[in-house]
Design a protein around this nucleic acid. Structure first.
Lengths: 204, 204
DNA sequence: CGACATCTGTCAGGCACTGACAGATTCGCT
DNA sequence: AGCGAATCTGTCAGTGCCTGACAGATGTCG
């Protein structure tokens, strides 16, 4: 049952092999032009086995995105307790994004997933669905920071949803800008706007 | 080419018949248990014709949601020019939702779509995708209200995305609350929170 | 009425995805 | 090592979504 058993290691290896093969094919042929059979063949398993690891062809991409969410959670937990929630989210997200930008290993895969999400509607749809699935988890952490009940108080869920939306806007702006503006900067600016309030013009 | 030609009227009729039949079957049998063939049979057309009207089975639901977006746009344009954007969105959305709650015709269909979106993942995914498609349009109107460039200034897109997220949170909260709390009230509260700022605790 | 455009049904087919079964692999135990 | 149990995998058959291509029906306009 532990992670060092032969069975578990084999499973992990085929799982990663499937992800690698899938991204290789997605980037060269495109998402919809790639069939599950091709991915499975590249790893020398049956297509039936593919569906035992991933619920759908899109899930290969979203499984990577899920890990990114978990990274944000870790970074969020590491932020000081007194920090306001949006500010904490701003720093946590910026931290994770900068790590992806500089870390050579996952940097390619990260850009790969982002392009995939923006370019193929099916992946986009599944990705958005996964993001909303993660909203409860994120709301839970926000509620913890605020010291309020995550069910009775609507604010944690709102903050989580708004933060997720801001991040999506930043990523999309990143994909659309011609020069290589950094995602981390775009996201940082988006969160900074959230901190200041968005009911323009401010009724001061 | 005008809307009163026989051909156009026939098309409109089959389109509405398909939507009605689809919702009838979705509510009784469930979304995934309903096949496109069944919907087409109920209207006495071929399933091929169904796909000439709707790009996918999910699109039957999202086509209705699209109309709701258009309603919000109309309401938004009717708001006074000086009003801050989030406040204007709050009133526009509230106005549209209250109309759906009281209008007996579309009230049933509205509740129907909302249940559909929350209950079946495929519809949820497609719905979210359509919402992001509408973000540009909404951002355009927000930019007009703010009197800024919708491309150079990132704020309109951010406001649109945040407002959409807030609305989604409200709808989801509505579906989860046992008693019949009104969507319009939940949405109003969510937008009110946005107006006040969400960087809790406020660093006052 | 006739030329034309448009809509529809039928057919064939690809691809995503699933349940069921049998064979192979690994695990836990003696 | 050896044996039964649990788990993983491949094969097969099948359903359902969705699409291109063609031919026939229907509406449109001079």
């Amino acid at each position: 049952m532990d992670g060092t058993s032969l069975r578990e290691r084999k499973k992990q290896r085929t799982r990663e092999a499937l992800i690698d093969a899938a991204f290789e094919l997605f980037t060269t042929k495109g998402f919809e032009a790639t069939t599950v059979d091709e991915i499975a063949e590249a790893v020398e398993v049956s297509s039936r086995t593919f569906f035992r690891y991933f619920g759908s062809k899109e899930d290969v991409a979203t499984s990577v995105q899920l890990q990114q969410f978990l990274d944000v959670y870790s970074a969020l937990d590491a932020r000081p307790a007194g920090e306001p929630v949006v500010t904490a989210l701003r720093h946590a997200v910026g931290q994770v994004l900068r790590a992806y930008e500089e870390g050579g290993d996952d940097a390619f895969q990260f850009a790969c997933v982002m392009r995939l999400v923006q370019d193929s509607p099916a992946v986009m749809a599944r990705s958005l669905e996964m993001c909303t699935e993660q909203l409860d988890e994120m709301a839970l952490r926000v509620a913890g920071r605020m010291g309020v009940d995550p069910i009775a108080d609507p604010r944690p869920k709102l903050v989580a949803a708004v933060a997720s939306a801001a991040l999506q806007v930043a990523v999309r702006a990143w994909r659309e800008t011609e020069p290589d503006e950094k995602v981390s900067d775009l996201a940082d600016r988006a969160f900074a706007l959230l901190e200041a309030g968005i009911n323009y013009p401010p009724p001061a």
